[in-house]
Amino acid sequence: MNKKEYLKDKWLNIIILLAFYFVILLILLAFKVHIQAIIAISIIYILGILTTTIMDYIRKKTFYQDLEKKLENLDQKYLIVEMLQEPNFLEGKLLMDALYEIDKSMIEKINEYKTQTQDFKEYVELWIHEVKLPISSLTLMIHNNKGEQNKKLLEQISRLDNYLEQILYYVRSEDAEKDYLITKVNLSKVISNVALKNKDTLLENGIDLIVSDVNIEVLTDSKWLEFMINQIINNSIKYSKKEKAYIKIIAKEESDRVDLAIYDNGIGISKEDLPRVFEKTYTGKNGRLGKKSTGMGLYIVDKLCKKLGHKVSIKSEEEQFTCVKLSFLKDDYYRVIEKETK
């Protein structure tokens, strides 16, 4: 709010006051009042108008300029009510009360949705754990009753399990609360778990798994990391070539970080698709090739990485290779956590 805006807003008042002034002037002239008295009355009248206008202007200016400035600087605009000083004029008070009520009802509404979402997430997690029971049962039944269809059945069960894991970690990655635990984790152990999980599919498809130099400890949540590596390897398997396919996993320790590269000689990703592979539900050309793809795997991997403070990057050349690299920083922050957990 500046003077010009204020005056523009008050133009009607000013015109009415001026009109009244002329009426008074005419009356005074008609009664033939002494000219000096007219001047005195005029000065007092105009001074009165000026003082009230200026006083009003100053009161409003302090409040509204404060409001505008704070609103501009605030990141979360709805917090503005908490930042303002109670104004000493009626309109301001009305505005503050209205803002307060609006904020309150909005927060209530948001909390309602928050609780709903939280309830839903908790139910989904619970449900996933429940579904894992019949899956365990099925796995054991298949193992106990050896038959010709076993491999096919197990393959479908492993697909089911994989989809379940995906939604479980999707829910976890969306959660504002921290439900991971950072500990010292040996990469070789996590890789071994993932390898065993995918053993049958790898052998079935004739894909060689070459793992080297992974006996390195990093700071991470081992379950989350296992999920991430599993997603990456699943992609490598899904988009492998028929002949001489392999997946190479190599870790390398640098001074400030540990890099884990998962390299495959599969069909690769086209240049146009590559920058978008971490986007939610983006499937690209490979997804359209008839391979089943949800476009969620790498998206969740990226989200989990951000939460854990790791970095994920991808390189690829069509028909040649794909290489996904996970970087674990040796951050001071982690060292503090490490000390505390000891």
């Binding site: 996933i128 754990h129 429940e130 894992k132 029971l133 899956i135 365990s136 099925l138 796995t139 054991l140 193992h143 106990n144 069960i157 399990d161 479980l168 439900d179 991971y180 635990l181 500990t183 065993l196 999980k197 949540d221 081992s222 379950k223 989350w224």
Partner: peptide, 27 residues
């Protein structure tokens, strides 16, 4: 079927010898 790191660390600290999540490979 609880497969979070917190659950595993807790169980191990209470004296479990191993922690396996469902569904597992029977072998």
């Amino acid at each position: 079927s609880k497969n979070s790191e917190v659950d595993e660390v807790l169980s191990m600290s209470y004296g479990a010898d191993d922690y396996i999540t469902k569904p597992y490979n029977p072998t």
